[in-house]
Structure formats: structure tokens, C-alpha cells
């Protein structure tokens, strides 16, 4: 796992640290004093504190936030933005927050966990790859894995999709082929992960960021895991399908929206046309946008309520996606 012991806090004097802070922080933001904090408890580490890991001092900034499904952004106290005081680079520090919880989709209940060990394992597997976030794992003062991630400057696939094209038709013919090509590359990255026996665990459109530095998408946040059953990767396949439907529809095409904007189209849909899990989202998008070619729509239908066959692995999905893409080009 590349574990390294965290350093003693006495490596730097307060004056040395303040000098380093002045290099990277605007004068009005330089604190009067900095305190080196023990890394064992993330609740004790606040804004303007310094933590030292692997010999490197990090000036802690704000807690990260995450919003989803319309829920207001929630602070993640165990995830803090920080400045590497040696290089000035922004990093994300992720403390151990081991959490088990029950996932629920309708009446379906499944065991989930947020595991620092899993993320640390995957960081090792994907080291140097342009399609995954990068980072290193150190042990905090309590002996738990603390991950230091490179901050990715860039927008999520979710946000990018919504900004492209003047209309869906314009988007589909002028922007979508490029986006689909990038998505195929992102699916290949997940295939790499699966080939190493690891699930991503939380494949979402906001967990795919386009890195401004490379112009390529990177998957982020691999610390979720779910207790799989008959097929280890089918929940990841569900995530990939949702993203594919999202980018193909240029956002979620919902029955609610159609009832307002295109009631005739809505009346032409039946329950089989909807997403197999989120049955307010349309999966059979060709019924809404008839210029979507059949081969591409057939891929989408694997994620619809009417499907009788599902993709069991990324290889099956990639084969169909590449065929559909060849027609779009």
C-alpha cells in the first residue's frame, strides 16, 4: 500500500512554516500563527492548521463538500483541501472515515462500506494512469491510512454535458460523438480496474472530472464498496449505464419534464422504455430523439425496464459501444 509513517511534528519551526505559507498564500490570508496538528483526529484539524505527512507540511484549508440528488451540499469533515507548502500545489487530504451503511434502491437492501483501504489499494493500482485521480497513502498518527490526492482542476462530465450544444440535435450531431469517444475511454479505465479485481463502487457522472492539465477525464472517489452477490461488477455496470443515458440525453430526460415539454412524446412511452432502476428517467431515448441510431439505442435499452439481457462486464458494453460509435463518426 506504500504506507509510510507520518513525521514527527518537530521537523519545522513555526517561523519556517510561516515563511513557506507566505510563498503560496496571499498576504491578507496569511495567518498570524500556524499550529502543527496531530493527524490522528480529523475533527481536531482546522483551517490554517498544518499537518506534516511524509516530511511535507500541508496548510489545511476548507473541508470538501459533496451534493447529490438535490440534497444540499454536505461537508465531509474527513476530507480537507490543503496546500503542499513545499510546492504550492493543492492537495486533497482524506482521513480514514470507516463507515458501514445500508444501501437502498426501492425495496432492495444491500450492505455498503466506505473503506480507506479500498481507495488506497486502487491508488496503487492506477498510479501514473491519466484516467484516474492520483494520490499516495500515508499512515496518520493513529496508524490509519490517510490519502493525499492531487487536486484536479476541471469540470465534471455532468456539468460539461449540460453546457454543450444549442439544442439536443445540435449537441448530438456536433458534440456527442466526441463525448462518447471520451466516455468509451473512461469505460476502458473501469475495465482495467475490474481486470485487477477491483470495483469502483460509486460510478457517477460527477465522479468523472475532465482534468484541465491533460484534457482527459479522470475517475475520482473509489472508497465506496458494496457487498456483491452473484456478479461482482454488475453494480458498476449499472453506474456506467446511467452515465451513458445521461450523456446521450444531454442530461436526464424525465417523465416529469416530458409531461411539461413534450406530452405527446410521453404518451408514446411505456414502462419498458424507462430506466430499470430510476423509473422516472427515460432509457429508450430514440423515442424522444428519433435521430439516435438504432445500434446506440440498443445499448441504452440494456439499462431499460424492458431489458431481458444485461451487460455482465465492461467487455460486452465496450464491444457494443464501439460498434455504435463507428456509425456516429
Amino acid at each position: 500500500m506504500g504506507k509510510k509513517a507520518s513525521d514527527k511534528t518537530s521537523l519545522y519551526t513555526e517561523e519556517e512554516l510561516l515563511e513557506m505559507v507566505r510563498l503560496w498564500v496571499p498576504p491578507e490570508r496569511v495567518p498570524g500563527r500556524v499550529r502543527i496538528k496531530d493527524t490522528s483526529d480529523f475533527f481536531q484539524v482546522d483551517y490554517d492548521d498544518v499537518v506534516v505527512l511524509g516530511g511535507v507540511p500541508y496548510l489545511v484549508r476548507n473541508n470538501e463538500r459533496e451534493g447529490r440528488f438535490g440534497i444540499e451540499d454536505q461537508q465531509k469533515f474527513w476530507v480537507k483541501r490543503a496546500i503542499d507548502l513545499k510546492t504550492g500545489r493543492i492537495k486533497i487530504l482524506k482521513w480514514t472515515f470507516w463507515e458501514t451503511f445500508t444501501g437502498r434502491i426501492g425495496s432492495l437492501v444491500f450492505e455498503c462500506v466506505r473503506s480507506p483501504l479500498k481507495e488506497a489499494r486502487i491508488l496503487n493500482i492506477v498510479r501514473g494512469r491519466p484516467d484516474f485521480m492520483q494520490g499516495e497513502t500515508f499512515m496518520d498518527a493513529a496508524g490509519n491510512p490517510l490519502r493525499i490526492m492531487d487536486f484536479i482542476h476541471g469540470k465534471s462530465l455532468e456539468d460539461i454535458t449540460l453546457t454543450l450544444g444549442a439544442s439536443h440535435e445540435d449537441y448530438f450531431f456536433n458534440h456527442y460523438p466526441g463525448l462518447l469517444s471520451e466516455f468509451i475511454t473512461a469505460v476502458e479505465a473501469i475495465a482495467f480496474l475490474h481486470a485487477h479485481g477491483e470495483k469502483h463502487g460509486d460510478l457517477r457522472r460527477d465522479h468523472l472530472l475532465k482534468d484541465n492539465a491533460t484534457g482527459r477525464y479522470r475517475w475520482i472517489d473509489f472508497d465506496y464498496n458494496y457487498r456483491h452477490r452473484a456478479n461482482k461488477f454488475s453494480y458498476d455496470m449499472f453506474g456506467l449505464g446511467n452515465i451513458l443515458i445521461y450523456i446521450t440525453g444531454r442530461g436526464d430526460v424525465t417523465t416529469h419534464n416530458l409531461s411539461h415539454n413534450a406530452p405527446d412524446t410521453l404518451s408514446g412511452l411505456d414502462s419498458d422504455d424507462l430506466n430499470i432502476v430510476f423509473n422516472y428517467r427515460v432509457a429508450n431515448l430514440r423515442k424522444v430523439y428519433p435521430y439516435i441510431p438504432e445500434p446506440l439505442n440498443r445499448v441504452l435499452l440494456h439499462f431499460s425496464a424492458g431489458a431481458s439481457v444485461y451487460y455482465l462486464n465492461t467487455a460486452e458494453l465496450l464491444a457494443d459501444l464501439k460498434e455504435a460509435f463507428s456509425i456516429l463518426k
Binding site: 434502491i105 452473484a230 430499470i276
Partner: peptide, 11 residues
């Protein structure tokens, strides 16, 4: 259910 088979597979 179909959803369960889709999400977790069927032996």
C-alpha cells in the same frame, strides 16, 4: 425482481 437481477446478477 428484475432490478435485483440487474444490480447484483443472477446465478
Amino acid at each position: 425482481s428484475k432490478t435485483e437481477e440487474f444490480l447484483f446478477g443472477s446465478i
